[in-house]
Structure formats: C-alpha cells, structure tokens
C-alpha cells in the first residue's frame, strides 16, 4: 500500500551522497588516450599516400603534395572539412605513419562555418597544443625523425 514511502526514503537518503556535477568550464573532463576529438596532424610524418582521403566515409579530407629535391613526397596542403567529419577515426586507422591522429580537443562550437575548415596549419597547431597538454603521450622527437626517414 505505502510503496511510495519507500521511494521517499530513497530520495532523502541520497542527500549526503557525493555530488557528481563537473564544474565544466573551469574543470574539464579528463579524456582517455583513445578519445576521438578533433584531428591533429604531424606534417613531417606524412607520406602523401592519400589513404586517409580515400577511406573517409564522408570525403571530408583533401590533401596535396609534391616531390622535393630528393624525389620524396612532401605534404603541401591538408584540409579537413569539419562540417561533415563524423569523427569515426578511420583516417587514423589507415595512416601508415600515424601522421594524422586524434586529439582530445572537443570544444567544437563556432560562430561561422569557415571556422570548421581546418587546414594543415590549424591541425599542426592542435598537435603542438596536444603535446603541451599531454607531455607523456607525445611521440619522442627521434621517433618522429625515424618514421619520417622511412
């Protein structure tokens, strides 16, 4: 008959419980290493193999490169149209040198669509930011050179 009294007991007993609210703008959630936020890009590693652009389900990646004096391909432009990117992380999966990787940047709101056109400069900056935020997760300089040399 008085089942609702039990319910009242449940709600009142939760009063001293620890609060779960995260004070968001001051206190940001700590996202794990695998988190798929906005991409970051390391130009030295890119071999212009075009695999990321081909695997992308929404075709939001476009890139171009040219051969330098050593007949080696160098990336020139790398753009992600973030309007249509669905953050599926397929591009990072196929990248042979891990030149394109995901970061934990997640605040994506903006006033204009133009801001969602992420070029190589932006993506590289994002990489630098990421390394600054997570010094433990950054690839050592020597490894970058080793991979780039391959």
């Amino acid at each position: 008959m008085f089942g609702f009294l039990k319910g009242l007991g449940v709600t009142i007993s939760q009063l001293p419980k620890k609060k779960v609210t995260v004070m968001y703008p001051e206190e940001k959630p700590d996202y794990p290493e695998r988190y798929r936020g906005v991409h970051r890009f390391i130009p030295e590693l890119c071999t212009v193999c075009n695999q990321c652009a081909r695997i992308c389900p929404t075709s939001c990646i476009s890139l171009s490169g040219s051969r330098d004096e050593n007949r080696k391909l160098r990336i020139e432009t790398y753009d992600i149209n973030f309007d249509i990117c669905i953050l599926c992380s397929q591009c990072t999966e196929v990248c042979p040198t891990e030149a394109i990787v995901m970061s934990d940047t997640f605040e994506l709101a903006s006033y204009t669509r133009d801001d969602f056109y992420l070029d190589m400069h932006w993506l590289h900056n994002n990489e630098l930011e990421y390394e600054r935020r997570h010094p433990d997760r950054a690839i050592p300089e020597t490894d970058v050179q080793k991979k780039a040399g391959n």
Binding site: F4, K6, G7, G9
Partner: peptide, 14 residues
Amino acid sequence: VKYRQLVTGNEIFL
C-alpha cells in the same frame, strides 16, 4: 535494488 524501491513499488506509477 534502489530503482525497485524508488519506482517499482510506487502506487501512482503502478
């Protein structure tokens, strides 16, 4: 168990 106490036995819900 808590959900049961809070909701499942509530007469208004029933």
